[in-house]
Structures are given as C-alpha cells and as structure tokens.
C-alpha cells in the first residue's frame, strides 16, 4: 500500500529493470551498474538503505525525481534523520519511506520531509488507510517546526507576541 497525506495512491514506479513506460526505482547498491534512462529525473528514482551517509547521495540528488529510504523496522529512526538531511541538501522531489512503518509514525515522517509511505503487505493487511489518515490528525499542533510547515507551537507563540506588541504600539 502506498499512501500520502491525502490517502492511498497508485504506485507508478517500478523496481528493477528500466522500462519504456514506467519510471524506475534503482537500488543504491546497483546505482553505478544499472543502465539509466536518459537524463529525465522524473523517470528515475533511487532507493537507499538507512545506513547511507547522505553526503554520498548528494551528487545523485539532482538526477532523480524520487528518493526512497528503506526502514528495516518501524522502530529504527535513522531514515527520519536522513530525510531531514536530504531536504536540507535541497532535494525537492518525492521522498518515500519504504518499510513496516506504523500509523503513529506517519506524522513524524511527513514532518521530517517525507511525502509518502510504501507499506509491505504484512502491515497493509492489518492497517487501514483510514487509520493512517486519522493518525495525522492526532496532534493539532506540535512543538517542532516540520518540513513545509511553519506553524510550530513556538512559532505561534512568537506570532501572538508580535501581534500583541503591534496592538500595544
């Protein structure tokens, strides 16, 4: 099951051999040996292990439209830090978490810069799309500033202070 913040979506990417139609996701381990289709980042993605140093991925980021990070286990949070670093490196394409994540981690993953989660069948048959979406509504506000969001609790307090300061002025 592939999910983003709006719900379930079809997976247009294929793994393995490049194909004339579908965009292809190349495993990091095969990145240097696999034939690549032209220079179209929209049709090329890379799938990395959660042990990869993001410094090593940097040169690749401009060539791909999707980076997938493999989570060995939901309890292994390395991918969350990798996502932050990939976003900090300026990557604006699609960032995908692959593995047995749990719904309670979905909001965290989005805050760290992920766009979507690809769940294995063993998780997907227990967990509904609805559960995943519901988990995003668990907290109305968070203390930390997330990727694409400027509305941390600290930021809102700052804003309240500013508007109060203005109305006093």
């Amino acid at each position: 099951m592939l999910l983003d913040r709006t719900g379930r979506k079809p997976d247009l990417w294929t793994r393995g051999q490049p194909d004339d139609h579908a965009p292809v996701l190349v495993a990091w381990e095969e990145w240097n040996t696999q034939a690549r289709l032209g220079n179209d980042p929209d049709r090329l993605g890379v799938e990395i292990p959660n042990t990869l140093a993001i410094e090593d991925l940097r040169p690749v980021l401009s060539q791909v439209g999707l980076v997938a990070i493999r989570f060995g286990a939901f309890s292994d949070g390395r991918g969350l830090s990798q996502a932050r670093l990939i976003r900090r490196a300026g990557f604006t394409g699609v960032l995908r978490a692959v593995g047995p994540l749990i719904p309670d981690e979905f909001g965290f993953a989005l805050q760290c810069g992920f766009d979507e989660v690809e769940l294995p069948e063993s998780s997907a048959h227990r967990q509904s799309e609805d559960e995943w979406l519901r988990s995003l509504a668990a907290y109305s506000h968070t203390y930390q500033q997330g990727y694409r969001s400027r509305t941390s609790i600290l930021a809102q307090r700052r804003l309240a202070r500013l508007s109060k300061g203005q109305s006093h002025a």
Binding site: F74, S75, D76, G77, L80, S81, R84, E105, G107, F108, A109, Q111, C112, Y139, T142, Y143, Q144, G146, I153, L154
Partner: peptide, 13 residues
C-alpha cells in the same frame, strides 16, 4: 521538555 516532546526525528532513537 517542550522541544523533546513527540519530536518527529528523535522518537525512534
């Protein structure tokens, strides 16, 4: 306490 509460990146250390 506030910064570390439900920290998105550091909840699966």
């Amino acid at each position: 306490r506030q910064w570390s509460t439900a920290h998105p990146e550091f909840s699966y250390l």
